[in-house]
């Protein structure tokens, strides 16, 4: 990746993180931790790889994205707004009574959302359906998904993994947002799904393990997935929950809690500083 492009992506990721903090703050509820951990993945997908058209969000030839861990809607909405599907101003209305920005992604309400999600385990199955339809229609669009590591406790995830490998869906790339935390604590303490990479390999997936907050590593993984034929790719993205906001990092308490005014200001000032270090807007 060129230096300038990497710098721009880094700035975009900071902008998306600021949107997430502000959106959840204004909503007074929502899920900042997992939204921040998967921000870098969304940034690389939407601002480097995915073929999407903001003027025709339902273009049949577009690449698809499914946020299977639907509670991370703030990250998806912030990304879509930053991409231009709707105004970033709308993000302040997240979860409000007259807003189209539903608490969890709703494809009928939000331009750019390809699948309604929120009930864990279902999004990845839907993405299998999208990839299967792409193969059937001999289209060359690709389907990208983010699942959570806690989400892997849902049996349906494994049904979907089995089906994707069975149908050799090499047009499907799933990112595991492996931040190690869920609502009630560490995934290994609540109900360990580990060892995930070896389980994915046993399900006949191409497995790539990366630092999931490293834009270059994410980009490389997407390229490798594109080059892989005959099997779907699982990118095990080792991430930090709450990434980018010091007091949220690695704290499961920030899974589903909104910052108060003071916390919001502190988070935004940290992100502003990060932007300054990148040379400013």
């Amino acid at each position: 990746m060129e230096k300038q492009q990497l710098l721009e992506l880094k700035k975009t990721a900071v902008r998306i993180r600021r949107h997430i903090i502000d959106a959840v703050y204004h909503a007074g509820s929502g899920h900042p931790g997992g939204s921040l951990s998967c921000t870098d993945i969304l940034t690389v997908l939407y601002f480097k790889h995915m073929n999407v058209n903001i003027n025709d969000p339902n273009d049949l030839d577009r690449d698809r994205f499914v946020m299977s861990k639907g509670h991370c809607a703030p990250a998806l909405y912030a990304t879509l707004a930053e991409k231009g599907f709707f105004s970033t101003e709308e993000l302040k209305n997240l979860r409000k009574i007259d807003s189209f920005l539903q608490g969890h992604p709703s494809m009928k309400d939000v331009p750019g959302v390809d699948m309604s999600t929120g009930s864990l385990g279902q999004g990845i199955s839907a993405s299998v359906g999208m990839a299967l339809a792409g193969k059937l229609d001999k289209k060359d669009y690709r389907v990208y998904v983010i699942i959570g590591d806690g989400e892997c406790q849902e049996g349906q995830v494994w049904e979907a993994l089995m089906a994707a490998a069975h149908y050799k869906l090499d047009n499907l790339t799933v990112f595991l947002d492996h931040n190690g935390l869920q609502i009630d604590g560490k995934i290994t303490e609540v109900m360990s799904p580990e060892c995930l990479p070896s389980k994915f390999r046993a399900f006949n997936w191409n497995v790539i393990e990366i630092d999931g907050n490293d834009l270059i590593a994410i980009d490389d993984a997407v390229e490798k997935a594109k080059a892989t034929k005959g099997m779907p790719t699982m990118v095990v993205a080792n991430t930090v929950k709450g990434k980018g906001v010091s007091f949220m990092e690695g704290e499961y308490g920030w899974h589903g809690k909104a910052p108060n005014k003071e916390e919001r200001d502190k988070a935004i000032s940290e992100l502003d500083k990060a932007m300054e270090l990148l040379g400013g807007e």
Binding site: V66, G121, S125, G155, E159, A160, M162, A163
Partner: peptide, 22 residues
Amino acid sequence: FNIGIAEANMISIAAGMATCGK
């Protein structure tokens, strides 16, 4: 498409295919 003995998966796969115009 036979989805195997996995009804929940079948229904969500059906949903995904429907989003693609099927």
